[in-house]
């Protein structure tokens, strides 16, 4: 029987599933062991697996990712937590120059089966340095896989797939979704990277979304249905690999493309998606591609401002309605 757990609990469930299966899976990060993580996403893992496998680190993001990288190239499968995704900026070198490039530069001599976990995205009134959605930064780097789950089941299944993957996987957990609940399958659950999910089938428009924004898109689709507009909502789930075939199939069906992105406007994943659609699905389009994003601003702290910045159900409804009008 499937059980209902929170997105937050799903992180520990997914990690525990992999740690029980494979003794080479180890966890490091700031406050992840004794404290169970600042987001409490690793609660209980120290007790279950002991301090050798669940290790607290200093506030040293370069040292954390360096340790993960060195361990991954010598036989372990480390999962490193960076806490707030914004902190990837203080170890950008390790991510971009070291981890992403090692396989290519060494012509395959080095493999890095590692996962970096991030608390990604806004909505929690933390202000500009603790609220960013960094998937756009990461997607731009050859050699990284980028995953953003939107449900507890996907957290478990995609985490398993990420841990088992031979390449470095950037695993972006949406902070705003940690308290949300959902069903997860009973028993071992392993999903597949690079597969999108059609969360709601529809015929009038395709709304592509990621993470927290999947739920906004579904909310919008629900409201639009009452107006007789039948939207398809596609949860991309991973940006690299990107499930272009599911995207193209949806565009062929509806002819109208919308993206809902939490990140700022320029170079968001939706821009890449729009470019792919323009190149490969042009003759399926009945209208211009429309993107719903945050404005091109740092995220503000005040709730009224942050709510105005991040795409809301109402904004998605308005843009889709206008796009179909």
């Amino acid at each position: 029987m499937p059980q209902v757990i929170t997105y937050r609990e799903a992180v520990a469930v997914g990690l525990a599933q992999e740690m029980e299966r494979d003794p080479s899976v180890v966890l490091i990060g700031e406050d992840i062991a004794t404290a169970g993580g600042v987001f409490k996403a690793t609660a209980g893992l120290l007790e279950k697996f002991g301090p050798k496998r669940v290790r607290d680190t200093p506030i040293s993001e370069q040292a954390i990712l360096g340790a993960a990288m060195g361990a991954a190239m010598t036989g372990l499968r480390p999962v490193a937590e960076l806490m707030f995704a914004d902190f990837v900026s203080v170890c950008h070198d390790l991510v971009v120059n070291q981890i992403a490039k090692a396989r290519y530069m060494t012509n395959g001599q080095i493999s890095l089966p590692l996962v970096v976990r991030f608390g990604n995205g806004g909505g929690l009134r933390f202000g500009a340095q603790h609220s960013q959605s960094v998937e756009g930064w990461l997607m731009a780097v050859p050699g990284l896989k980028v995953v953003v789950p939107s449900t507890p089941a996907d957290v478990v299944g995609l985490m398993a797939a990420a841990v088992r993957d031979e390449d470095p996987v950037m695993f972006l957990e949406e902070k705003a979704l940690y308290p949300t609940s959902g069903e997860v399958p009973e028993g071992e659950h392993v999903d597949e990277l690079g597969t999108a999910r059609v969360r709601r089938a529809g015929s009038d428009a395709s709304i592509f979304a990621l993470g927290t924004m999947v739920h906004r898109a579904l909310g919008a689709a629900g409201q639009l249905a009452a107006e007789g507009i039948d939207c398809e909502v596609v949860d991309l789930r991973s940006l690299v690999p990107l499930d272009v075939s599911t995207v193209a199939a949806s565009v062929a069906k509806t002819g109208r493309v919308f993206t809902v992105e939490e990140g700022p406007r320029l170079c968001g994943w939706g821009a890449e998606l729009a470019s792919i659609v323009a190149e490969e699905c042009f003759y399926d389009l009945d209208a211009p591609v429309r993107r719903v994003t945050t404005p091109h601003i740092p995220l503000p702290a005040a709730d009224s401002l942050e709510d105005a910045a991040i795409p809301s159900v109402e904004r998605v409804v308005a843009v889709v309605r206008e796009g179909l009008g």
């Binding site: 370069q62 040292a63 990712l65 360096g66 340790a67 993960a68 991954a72 070198d93």
Partner: peptide, 9 residues
């Protein structure tokens, strides 16, 4: 950077 990576090994 590689000092941190050597730690990992």
């Amino acid at each position: 950077a590689h000092l941190t990576i050597a730690n990992g090994a």
